[in-house]
Amino acid sequence: MSLKATSVRLDDETLARVGQMAEAMNRPRAWLMAEAIKQYVAREEWFIHEVEKGVIAADEGRLIDHKDIKAKWEAKRAAQMD
């Protein structure tokens, strides 16, 4: 895998926070920013994929009534409180 350089503009406070985190992790700032971007992109790709699956399910009529979902989550919450 080849790496390409890019630039990111950050406000002073955010850049300082990135620097503090990188120092605490004993990593370069560039590594921390690259890792953050990788995680963000992966999370957003997952979200887009899940939304697309939901749209397809809705188009096919595979929907669950709100009261059924609510009952499921209330039962789950009650079980956690026990």
Rank of each mutant, 00 (worst) to 15 (best):
I48H: 07
Q80D: 14
E44G: 01
I37P: 03
F47V: 09
D12K: 07
V8L: 15
L3D: 13
E45G: 05
M25W: 00
K38G: 08
D82H: 06
A75N: 05
A79M: 03
E44F: 00
K53V: 03
M33Q: 05
L3A: 06
M81A: 14
E74A: 04
G19P: 07
D68Y: 09
V41L: 12
Q39R: 15
T14N: 03
E50W: 03
L32R: 02
L10H: 02
A79I: 01
A79S: 07
R43E: 09
D59G: 15
H66P: 06
Q80T: 04
V55L: 07
K72Y: 11
M21R: 13
V55H: 10
V18S: 03
E50P: 00
K67R: 15
D68I: 08
G54D: 08
L3W: 04
R17D: 06
K38L: 11
A57N: 11
H49Y: 08
V18H: 03
A30E: 08
E60R: 15
H66K: 13
K72F: 14
A42K: 11
M81Y: 03
D59K: 13
G19W: 01
L15I: 04
A57C: 10
K38H: 11
R17F: 02
A22Q: 01
K67D: 13
A30I: 07
W46A: 14
A36D: 03
K38R: 15
Q20H: 10
V41C: 09
A22N: 02
E45W: 07
E74I: 03
D68Q: 10
R29F: 01
L10K: 01
D11I: 09
G61W: 12
I37Y: 04
E35H: 04
K72E: 12
R27S: 00
S7A: 13
A5P: 03
V41R: 11
I56P: 02
G19I: 05
R27L: 01
F47T: 12
A75Y: 04
Q20W: 10
Q39I: 06
E13Q: 11
K4D: 10
E52M: 07
I64R: 11
Y40A: 08
A22R: 00
R29K: 15
A36W: 05
V55F: 05
D12L: 10
T6Q: 04
D82T: 11
R17H: 05
T6M: 09
H66F: 15
D11A: 05
E52Q: 15
I64M: 13
